[in-house]
Design a binder for these strands. Structure first.
Lengths: 287, 287
DNA sequence: TGATCTTACGTTTAGCGTAACAATA
DNA sequence: TATTGTTACGCTAAACGTAAGATCA
């Protein structure tokens, strides 16, 4: 019989041109490769090589064999990868959220309840999340609107309220407003974190006249906060330390779109949502 | 590392349900299979089985592994088959003809010149043959019309002339004609061999009012000849023994379509046609 | 009690590397 | 002479089957 190693040696020979180089590359002696080529040829029962006294080359049939050997090896590698990936997926809870803040609460909750499981969390669009939960790709989704699909569990989870933080001398603060609307601040440029999920789209849609200075890195963002007077956004779930705020004053955004209730969704055959994330836990998370 | 045998054992276990039955089917001891399943599991590094004390079953991951193992084994089998087939194709001369008679001459010629080669001869349509020669699938083609394609060698090979053999008292023989046309015999039913290539189509097209009693088997055809007075066809290349003819009289068919010159064609990169089948050989073949 | 899987043990053998050899450029 | 491929030899380690043991229906 023939082995995967044999095929590896064959393809290595095809790649490197000589038995010596192939042996080198595979860290084996070249008598071994000589033997293996003989074995393979005998096993196939056909001529695969043109041999002169100190030279061996693939013939047409040999090239055909190499071509197929690559396919076999690919299939084998694919097998390993797929099986391991499948096994890993069994130990992984996939969480997708339309905004980052809910993840800060749900992920530790799940991690505590399922210490053996890997948690995979990511941001995604609302519709995409629902689709993934429906397909079973995503186990726990966090979306903006209640989901009424019969195959999907849904419950309210947590709410997030947006405020704008303006420097004390900012024109819109002249009348000391208790709240603002997007249109009041539209046109003023802002500092913005990246990877904000739906918040990002919302701000750009509601403040088309504004430009946003986007920063992904946490430290650099704080650096920018301290050294500029550009407005920034905070929420009840996402605040910054006072010393980074550079004296800014927070005013809530009254617009309903800036005050959302996140909903937890999951497939009905999964009990993660019902048993793991109890209302009590949610409350605790908010506090 | 893992081997093809290991994968065979895995799939055998999946097929048969127990290690004992799988071992039986593969003619090995079942401790061997126990070991192999362990090895495979260890090699994958994931759980593939649910084990109780005297029972072992595939789990979901295991079924995934089996699925992929089948693919790998298929790829391996495909490799063996393809390489052997390719090797065989190198030792095979493929001959395609639009009629059987030329094959009776060309095949022995080629067999004599290339004793190490396998000959594969078959009937095919004129256009199909040209296509196959163009693609290199067919090495030597025998067609009805000269081929002018620059990539194809072509030369006249041999001619075949059709005659009809009628019982002596047949009405169309009353004026003792030197030759006949298809229309003269259209409407009379005939005995016909099958697998006649283009002759078959020709007769049916030119004699739409006739019905043909078709017989493939050689002995049975002769039996029918002896025991009936139905007209039959012969050619200069294909005659029958006088005792089988049952007194029939041969009259040539004058129609040009019934008198053809076959042409040999082959790819220009193949010298079979030029060096092997010389004009002298062809003449000899006709005699 | 029969069927199934696992573990232990002894033997065989397949396969590896070292070394020596032969041929070529 | 350096490079390449083949052959010969001795050793190791992997793998097999037999036998014995454990568990379940």
């Amino acid at each position: 019989m023939i082995s995967f190693e044999d095929l590896e040696q064959l393809t290595a020979f095809a790649r490197h041109g000589t038995l010596v180089k192939a042996a080198d590359a595979l860290h084996i002696s070249q008598p071994t490769i000589t033997r293996t080529m003989k074995n393979i040829e005998e096993y196939f029962g056909v001529k695969l090589f043109e041999r002169s006294k100190n030279r061996i080359r693939l013939n047409g049939t040999g090239e055909k064999a190499v071509e197929h050997a690559e396919k076999v090896l690919d299939a084998a590698r694919q097998m390993m990868a797929s099986v391991r990936e499948y096994d890993r997926s069994l130990r992984t809870i996939v969480v997708e959220s339309c905004a980052p803040a809910p993840l800060w609460f749900i992920v530790p909750q799940l991690a505590k309840k399922y210490p053996a499981m890997t948690l995979s969390s990511s941001l995604a669009g609302n519709e995409e999340i629902i689709e993934h939960v429906r397909e079973g790709i995503c186990h726990v989704g966090i979306v903006l609107t209640p989901c009424t699909e019969p195959s999907i569990h849904c419950r309210p989870y947590i709410q997030e309220n947006l405020s704008i933080c303006l420097p004390p001398n900012h024109p819109v603060l002249q009348n000391a407003p208790a709240s603002l609307d997007f249109r009041d601040i539209n046109g003023f440029n802002c500092l913005l974190r990246s990877r904000l999920g739906f918040w990002d789209d919302l701000c750009r849609r509601e403040m088309p006249a504004s430009r946003f200075l986007v920063q992904e890195d946490d430290d650099e963002f704080r650096e920018l906060m301290r050294n500029s007077t550009l407005p920034i956004f905070i929420t009840n779930l996402a605040t910054y330390r006072e010393e980074d705020m550079n004296g800014r004053v927070s005013i809530p955004i009254a617009d309903p779109k800036a005050n959302v209730v996140y909903h937890l969704i999951s497939g009905k055959n999964i009990d993660i949502l019902g048993t793991i994330v109890s209302d009590k836990n949610i409350t605790a998370a908010i506090l």
